[in-house]
Design a protein around this nucleic acid. Structure first.
Lengths: 232, 232
DNA sequence: GTCTATATAGCGATAGAC
DNA sequence: GTCTATCGCTATATAGAC
C-alpha cells in the first residue's frame, strides 16, 4: 500500500454530469471542491483529497487557481453571481409590475426562489448546503467573500422593503431582513431532522411547497406590528 | 521573542468572571476554547493556540480531556444543558399558567430568551456566537453533538405549538419551527452587518428589543394562514 | 498535574522535468 | 498543462521526567 499506484484511477465519482463526463480539469476541480466543501467543510477538506477525487494532480489547484483560498473564492463566486443577478432581476421585475412598491411577498420571493430553486439542480444541491453553512458558520475569510457579494444586494432589498412597509423603521427592517436570511439559510443547509417527521409527508429536503410556506411565514412576520416599549 | 517566556501570563483576558481569576486549568481551557472557537472556528483553532492563551501546557488538553474532540464536546455540553433546561422550565411554566395551551409568543419566548439572554453574560457572549455557527455550519461531528441535545427539545416544543395552533399540520409546524431556529441562530451568531445601519440606532449585537422583535416576527409567521395548493 | 521533547502525520505550496 | 518530488510548516497526540 505504500508502493504508490501508477497513474491513479482518473474517472471515479463522476458520471453525474450530463454529457461531459471529463470536462476540463479546472471545472472538475470546482465541482469536486463544491461537493466536498458542502459535505465536510472547507477547512477540513485538503487539496490532496480534492485533486485525488477530481482525478487531477496535486499541483493542479495551484496551477489553475494559485492557492486554496483562490479556489474557495471561485467556488462561491461561480454560483453566487448568477443567483444574485437572478434575485435583482426578479426584484426589478416585481417593482416594474407593481409600479415601484410590490407586496412584501413578491420581494421575499425574489430573494428566496433563486436560492432554493437549486433543489432541483443536481449540481446545485451541494452548493445549496455550502451556502447555508457559509452564511452562519465558516471562517471570517469565507464570510468576507460572501459579504462582499451580498452587501449591495442586502441594501437593495431592504430599501425595497422600506417602500413596501413604510410603517417599519429602517432599523427594524434590517433586523427582520436578518431573521429572514437566517431562516432561509437554515432551510438551505438542510441538516438533520429536528424531529422524526411522524406524518412522513415531506422530508427534510426543501421543495416548492416549503418555499411558498417560507415566503408566507416571513411575509407575516414582516407585517407584524412593532411592540417596542422603551425606545425613542 | 523566540527565547520562550518563563511561565506565561496566567491572567489575561479574564477578570470577566466574578471572584475566581485563575480558576483551574481545566476551566481555563474550556473558557479559552469557547472564545477562540467562536472567534475563529473550531477546526482552525489549534490546541497550541488554546493552551498558550490559557497559560497552560500543550499537553494539558490531552491530559484533561483526552483529545481535541472531547474538549469540543465538553465546551458545548457545559453550556447547552443549562440552556435547554431553562427552555423546558419556561415552557412548562407557560403551560402551567395558561392551562396547557399558552400563546405562541410564550412558547417562542421559552425557546429564544434562554439563548439570547447570554448577551448580557460576558462569558456567554462567545458561546452565543459559537452556538449560532454550530446550528448551521460546522462539521458533522459537532452537529451530531448538538442534535442529540436538541432532538427531545425540538419535539417537545413542536408538540406545544401543535396545541397552540391546531389549524396547522404537524408537518407545517416542523418547517416553521425550523424557520424559527434558523432566524434565531442567525441572530445569535451576530456576524457582519447586512447593511451599514444608517440610523445608527441599534448595532449588530442583539439586545432585549431584538428578542422581543424576533418573538413578534416569528409568532406572526406561525399564525400565517397556509397557502398550499397541490397537497393532499 | 504539569512539564519538555518528540513521534507521526498531514497540510499548502513550489521547483523543475516532461 | 501535467507530472514527481520535496520543502517548510503545523497539526494532534504521547512518552516519560519532574
Amino acid at each position: 500500500m505504500a508502493t504508490r499506484e501508477p497513474i491513479h484511477s482518473s474517472r471515479r465519482t463522476r458520471a453525474a454530469s450530463k454529457a461531459h463526463p471529463p470536462a476540463t480539469t479546472r471545472e472538475r476541480l470546482l465541482d469536486v471542491s463544491e461537493r466536498l466543501f458542502a459535505e465536510k467543510g472547507i477547512e477540513t477538506t485538503s487539496l490532496r483529497t480534492i485533486t485525488r477525487e477530481a482525478g487531477a494532480n496535486l499541483a493542479a489547484v495551484n496551477y489553475h487557481f494559485g492557492s486554496k483560498t483562490a479556489l474557495v473564492t471561485e467556488v462561491f463566486a461561480r454560483r453566487i453571481q448568477p443567483i444574485n443577478e437572478d434575485r435583482l432581476r426578479r426584484l426589478e421585475e416585481a417593482e416594474a409590475e407593481s409600479g415601484g412598491t410590490p407586496r412584501i411577498e413578491r420581494i421575499l420571493e425574489a430573494l428566496i426562489v433563486p436560492a432554493l430553486v437549486l433543489v432541483r439542480d443536481p449540481g446545485g444541491r451541494h452548493f445549496r448546503r455550502l451556502m447555508g453553512r457559509a452564511h452562519s458558520g465558516s471562517s471570517q475569510e469565507v464570510q468576507q467573500i460572501l459579504l462582499s457579494q451580498f452587501e449591495r444586494l442586502g441594501r437593495r432589498f431592504c430599501e425595497a422593503i422600506e417602500r413596501a412597509l413604510p410603517q417599519l423603521t429602517p432599523d427594524e427592517i434590517t433586523w427582520r431582513f436578518k431573521f429572514s436570511i437566517g431562516a432561509m439559510a437554515f432551510v438551505m443547509v438542510g441538516g438533520p431532522p429536528l424531529r422524526a417527521a411522524g406524518a412522513r409527508s415531506r422530508g427534510n429536503e426543501p421543495d416548492e411547497t416549503v418555499t411558498a410556506d417560507l415566503v408566507a411565514f416571513l411575509a407575516a412576520g414582516f407585517r407584524a406590528p412593532i411592540t417596542r416599549e422603551g425606545r425613542s
